[in-house]
Each structure stands twice: as structure tokens, then as C-alpha cells.
Design a protein around this nucleic acid. Sequence first.
DNA 1: TGTTAAATTAATAATCGTTCCGATTATTAA
DNA 2: TTAATAATCGGAACGATTATTAATTTAACA
Lengths: 131, 131
Amino acid sequence: MGTDVTYRKSKQRERILQLLRETDVHPSVDWLYEKLKKEFPKLSLGTVYRNLSILVDQGLVKKIHFGSTYDRFDGRRAPHYHLICEACGKIEDLELAVYEEITRTAQTQSDFTITRHMIEFYGLCADCKHQ
Amino acid sequence: MGTDVTYRKSKQRERILQLLRETDVHPSVDWLYEKLKKEFPKLSLGTVYRNLSILVDQGLVKKIHFGSTYDRFDGRRAPHYHLICEACGKIEDLELAVYEEITRTAQTQSDFTITRHMIEFYGLCADCKHQ
DNA sequence: TGTTAAATTAATAATCGTTCCGATTATTAA
DNA sequence: TTAATAATCGGAACGATTATTAATTTAACA
């Protein structure tokens, strides 16, 4: 996904964006694929993936749970927050007191029973900052 | 992974936990596998996976990026937080003003260049609450 | 200590979500 | 209309993870 690529419009991509704008269910790839197969019977799964990544690239859509594609494990027991380098994927612990009250504040705005929260901070680590 | 299973101890699992306690790099499965292969030349990748899931089950280790195994997409442009139901995986938007100052506070505690943060709240949605 | 049943292991096959590929089709600018 | 090339389709390939299997190791107790 280079920076200087020009995108042509495509019916499929337009509809993917439209669907994402219309709904609030935070669709998965399969959800979009199943919906769109009715309009585009020959639609391929790869097309959905490719267009989603173009839309994310264009800043029109956000990918939730962006981060590394594989699991990481943490032997630290106390709750704490994470710093994630967007260049190299490094994960560090952040020495910052956990905001317990955020969970309670969120609770007042929702009918979920909220038990915990997680914060991830994104940016560039010291190494990647200097190329 | 039932709740009433008794686990026997195993050298491999003990070392995995020990490694996770000693390090702060938030190891991936492969990192652990490569380290431990020196001590247990016949170690299999499946053993690392199985023991990690036992340790997570016992609450001794945390899996980072716990949540859905596939990506979700969001067509909403303004930054906002998410509520995630731990029972059914539903993701909802939370109507809560974004705490811009959290990013700045975190910045004072780190040598990362922090550009943004994300908060996810975990709990049970209204439907799952009532079974 | 020695026996034995049960848990753990290694190896490998299967699965899942995602990305990549070659051939074809569609869009755009000239 | 034409030439250039981006986007499509369908399927193969891929990496991370999970499940299956038979063989090995271990805890517990006689």
C-alpha cells in the first residue's frame, strides 16, 4: 500500500464504505462479504480484504484491534497499560497509575456491566524515532 | 479448559511461567519456543501453546489483545471508545468524551512519541447479562 | 521403592483468518 | 477509441493457532 498510488473507484469499494457508514455493528470481513454477495454474486473474499485495507489506508475506516497479528503474553499480575510502537511492534509497559474511575464513569453511560478497561498508547519507540 | 481441572506440574510449564516473570518484552509464542528449545531440545510448539493457555486459565499470565480473533471495522470517523462483551463478542460504541489529556499524561512517563490512545471496556452486554 | 492410572508430551494434521498470485475485466486520461 | 493500469475473481499459499494421536512421564499410593 504505497503512498503515491492513485485509486480508481470501484462499485465494490463504494458499497463496502457505504455499509460501514450505515451500520453500527462493527462488521467483520465475513459479515460484509455475506451482505455484498447478494449484490455481487461473484464477489471474492480477497476483494473485501483488499478494499478494506485501501479504505483504512485512506483514513475512511478504522480497523479495531489494530496491532500485532499474533498473541503476546504478559506475566505481570497487576493491571497496567501498554505502549505499542507502530513501526516495530514493540510492546512496553507504561508506568502510570491505573485510572480506576474510568471504568465507573463508563458504566454510567452504558447498559453493559463493565468490569475492566484497557488502554493502549500508540506511537514510535525511541529506537524507531531515530530511523 | 474446564474450571475444575487439576493440573500436574510440568518442567516446561514452570519454565514458561518463570521466563514470563523474568522478562518485560511481552514474549510471543515463538520467542518462548526459541528460548526453551535450548533447554528442551525436543520441545514442540504445541506444548508452548497448550501451557500458555493453561497459565492464562490459571490467571498467572495475561494474553494481550484478548478479544476476537478476527478483525472488525469501523466506519465512524471521530475517535471514540469501545465496549466489548466478553460473552458474545459484540462491540458497541461508548458515548463518552475522549480523554485527550491521557495521551499527554502518558507522554510524560515515556520516551515513546505517543500520538494516540485507545480504550476498550470489557464486561457483559445487556443481553448476555440475563443469560 | 515399584506399580499404575492419569496427565503431559512430541509430532503432525487440521483449521482459521488473511494475503498473494495470474488471468481477466473495468476505469480513467489522452 | 485506445492505451495504460488499477481492480476484480478464484484459488493457492501462508502464518498463527488448535486439535488429534500415540508414546512418555509423573504423582500418588501400596
